[in-house]
Design a protein around this nucleic acid. Structure first.
Length: 793
DNA sequence: GGGCCTCAAGTTTTT
DNA sequence: CTTGAGGCCC
């Protein structure tokens, strides 16, 4: 029975199938469980057809999980339920009806980098002074406008008479015009254009209203204006809309999320049934107490209080360190301890406010050999070589995409310079054709001279790829790009071996993703589909919990996840909450958003929670001093224990009084291996002084050790750092000795299988090995990349 | 046309 | 302090 194992409130969610429903689901209250059971109930008990159900989530990961769980609940039909993110949903609709809004179905999806590039072009064209108008600002104003469904015309009207605002409206209009000309949409457009499609084409709207009779939206507190409109339009016909969210976890205001969507749901959908899920199944009482205490300081929220039947659990600890490096060291040691106690690293996470904080922690993980994985930071798909290859593929798929074509025209170097490119671009503009079409017509372009000949190398390549794309798989096509565009050669000739290897590995990873895609899409697999998948993934989506590594990520990325043990790092005023929020007296709601972020962080922890902070920290090259986060003051001492770890690392300073030290005695965390031998903590003042001297010395010794204290980049080039295939960041790895090879040797390759060495030549940078594989044909490769293993036969 | 150097700005958070 | 972009020189 579908209702089995659900608490009364969850059952109510499941059973209330018709009309608008608002589920206020506290952290860890089993909302995904309620939602998935609701879907199953609709199908099993109410006889609703699976394809009449739409469930919208925030991330692909959440969508995948929900899909899986629904399928597990149902004997069949579960795969017919439409579970996807807002963006993916809109893309699917837009592909079908692109022509109705003046697009072609093969449109490209621009990420933020592409949008920036395009905006730079727009600014040049409009002669906007980059000093006065930064592209970042322009893009964020435009994004805001789109989220509120303000068109360029609307904006121009509002701006009438105000010069600066008129110019911005102009930029908005031109930016949109260029997007359309490139047959491209940015992230916001996916939503806006879908809404526009619905509003302009009633028959299309009606079709989808008929199809989606039951609509569910997860993480509703993070929806923005367009998303609200999208859902509202779709649900108008049947009014069966169920939104699930937690106003206390609304943390995406900066991205246009409007917390009013959830706070005002009952007014927008009169007669809405409200269900509160307040029993928490995730955390200990202690952790939940802390979370409740912090969030109760927010004014603008739906009143509710989470409770749990879980055990009391350990007290939460706050550890104060002197510097961010000490903090990082402490964090890694705590995790080592946890591991020794039998905890899985995969069940532990370090959460922080800004990505920049991950550096020091990463470095420590590397030097101490603690396996970790970093989520976020530079997205895999934003790496240079990956973007380059994708730009080739996009040009193959969509010849109108000028941004992509221009990006790779001279990558790898073909001797085509900026002047030539500018001439071609000018010609394209004058004749109102795409950049690529202009390249095809190079003879007609005045002033190119001998450069014209070089252009055909590029166009021939694209045309040839376009032909091959008909028959080859995406992975094979990537191979062709890498080979035929001369990428292989460029990488081999690169002066930085470590970097070359990382690039090579990233390309392999991209191919692996393409193969993964082909597997999952089966018959449906297309280049277009792959590019789309790639455009809409977030880093969290590929988080693999089965790997036993410590997770490092931002508080934002952590939403929706849970860990046995959580360390929230950098609990300092100015960092968390950030300056912006503290200083913005006009907008007290900014601080409330930070507090919600704290709430999200705290409620990620199931069993153990530790806060850390550093008294000084390097920010933009200068040392900043900070007090501990004001959020910590909101937690009562009965659940929070303060310990000053400063003395473990540094001599005492006079500043000591500024910082609290509730307990001077030994704590669990004092048993740090390296320091343990120096006797127990908390000796008299004389001993302290003695120990300080001791420590200062050993401290410096430690810093001069191998690889210690150097920057991440220098670690990288030293080879100590090896790029993690998923994150691109470091991971410790033993040095590999190249295998001695001779012609005729039988070797094995991770990917191509077994083969025979045919040729070995010493290149300038590396040894080039030609291998005839039994199954994969003849391949040329560079010895250090290929990791060939000799096989005996 | 390419490479090197200098200068500037940036740090919230991401589909 | 780091990274990126633009300018200058070869």
């Amino acid at each position: 029975m579908i209702l089995d194992g659900l608490n009364p409130m969850q059952q109510e969610v499941v059973r209330t199938t018709d009309g608008p429903v608002l589920v206020l689901a506290g952290a860890g209250s089993g909302k995904t469980r309620a939602l998935t059971h609701r879907i199953a109930y609709l199908i099993e008990e109410k006889g609703v057809k699976p394809w009449n159900i739409l469930a919208i989530t925030f991330t692909n990961k959440a969508a995948g999980e929900m899909k899986e769980r629904v399928q597990a609940l149902l004997p069949y039909g579960g795969d017919q339920v439409w579970v996807a993110t807002f963006h993916a949903t809109c893309v699917r609709i837009l592909r079908r009806y692109a022509d109705r809004i003046g697009y072609e179905s093969g449109f490209t999806i621009y990420d933020t980098d592409d949008a920036k590039t395009l905006m730079r072009q727009v600014m040049k064209r409009l002669e906007l002074d980059p000093k006065m108008y930064r592209e970042r600002t322009l893009l964020s104003v435009i994004s805001d406008a789109k989220n509120k469904m303000i068109t360029p015309d609307d904006m121009a009207q509002d701006a009438a008479g105000k010069y600066r605002e008129m110019r911005i409206a102009e930029a908005y209009a031109e930016y949109q015009a260029q997007l359309k000309k490139n047959n491209a949409m940015d992230f916001d457009d996916l939503l806006c254009n879908a809404v526009e499609l619905f509003e302009r084409e009633p028959d299309v709207l009606r079709e989808y209203q008929e199809r989606f009779r039951y609509i569910m939206v997860d993480e509703y507190q993070d929806t923005n204006g367009v998303q609200f409109r999208f859902v509202e339009l779709l649900s108008r016909a049947h009014r069966n809309i169920c939104v699930v969210g937690d106003d206390d976890q609304s943390i995406y205001k900066f991205r246009g999320a409007d917390i009013r969507n959830i706070l005002d749901f009952e007014e927008t959908f009169p007669g809405a049934h409200v269900v509160r899920l307040e029993q928490n199944y995730r955390s200990t009482k202690t952790i939940l107490d802390a979370a409740n205490q912090v969030i109760s300081n927010n004014e603008d929220r739906k009143d509710k209080s989470l409770w749990t039947e879980n055990p009391e659990g350990d007290r939460i600890e706050l550890l104060t360190f002197d510097t961010a490096y000490d903090e990082a060291d402490g964090i890694v040691r705590i995790m080592e301890q946890a591991r020794l106690r039998g905890m899985r690293l995969g069940d532990c996470a370090v959460l922080y406010r800004t990505n920049a904080q991950s550096r020091a922690i990463e470095e420590k993980c590397v030097t101490r050999g603690l396996p970790y994985r970093l989520v976020g930071g530079v997205n895999f798909y934003q790496r240079k070589e990956i973007k380059d290859i994708l730009s080739y593929l996009r040009t193959v798929e969509n010849g109108q995409d000028d941004v992509s074509a221009m990006r790779v025209l001279n990558v790898p170097k073909r001797g085509i310079g900026a002047t030539t490119q500018a001439r071609v671009a000018m010609f394209a503009q004058d004749n109102d054709i795409s950049f690529f079409d202009a390249l095809l017509d190079a003879e007609a372009i005045p002033g190119l001279g001998k450069a014209a000949g070089k252009l055909s190398a590029f166009t021939d390549l694209i045309l040839s790829l376009r032909r091959q794309a008909q028959t080859l798989s995406v992975a094979e096509l990537i191979d062709r790009v890498v080979e035929e565009a001369g990428y292989e050669r460029e990488i081999a000739e690169s002066s930085d071996e470590t970097e070359a290897q990382a690039r090579e590995e990233n390309i392999e990873e991209l191919k692996a993703k393409a193969e993964e895609y082909a597997l999952q899409a089966g018959e449906e697999a297309t280049l277009r589909g792959f590019l789309e998948d790639v455009a809409l993934v977030a880093d969290v989506d590929s988080l693999d919990e089965s790997e036993d590594r410590l997770t490092l990520m931002t508080l934002h990325s952590a939403k929706g996840l849970e860990f046995d043990k959580v360390i929230m790092a950098g609990m300092e005023d100015g960092l968390f909450p950030g300056y912006m929020a503290i200083n913005d007296v006009e907008h007290p709601e900014e601080l409330e958003e930070e507090r919600r972020l704290a709430y999200v962080g705290i409620t990620r922890a199931k069993k153990e929670l530790t806060f850390t902070c550093a008294r000084q920290r390097m920010v933009n090259g200068e040392t900043r001093y900070a007090n501990e986060s004001r959020f910590l003051d909101e937690i009562s001492p009965t659940v929070l224990k303060r310990t000053d770890k400063t003395d473990l690392y540094r001599p005492r300073t006079e500043k000591r009084d500024l910082y609290r030290s509730e307990e001077c005695g030994r704590s669990r965390w004092d048993d740090y291996a390296d320091y343990g031998r120096r006797g127990s903590f908390g000796g008299g003042p004389e001993r302290d002084r003695e120990r300080d001297r001791d420590r200062r010395d050993s401290f410096q010794d430690g810093r001069s050790g191998p690889g210690f204290g150097r920057s991440v980049s220098s670690l990288k080039s030293s080879g100590l750092f090896d790029k993690h295939p998923k994150t691109g960041y470091g991971m410790k790895k033993p040095e590999q000795k190249p295998v001695e090879l001779h012609c005729g040797d039988r070797v094995s390759h991770a990917k191509f299988g077994i083969g025979t060495v045919r040729e070995i030549e010493d290149g300038p940078r590396d040894t080039e090995v030609t291998v005839e594989f039994d199954t994969a044909g003849v391949r040329k490769m560079y010895a250090s990349f290929a990791k060939l293993k000799k096989v005996e036969e």
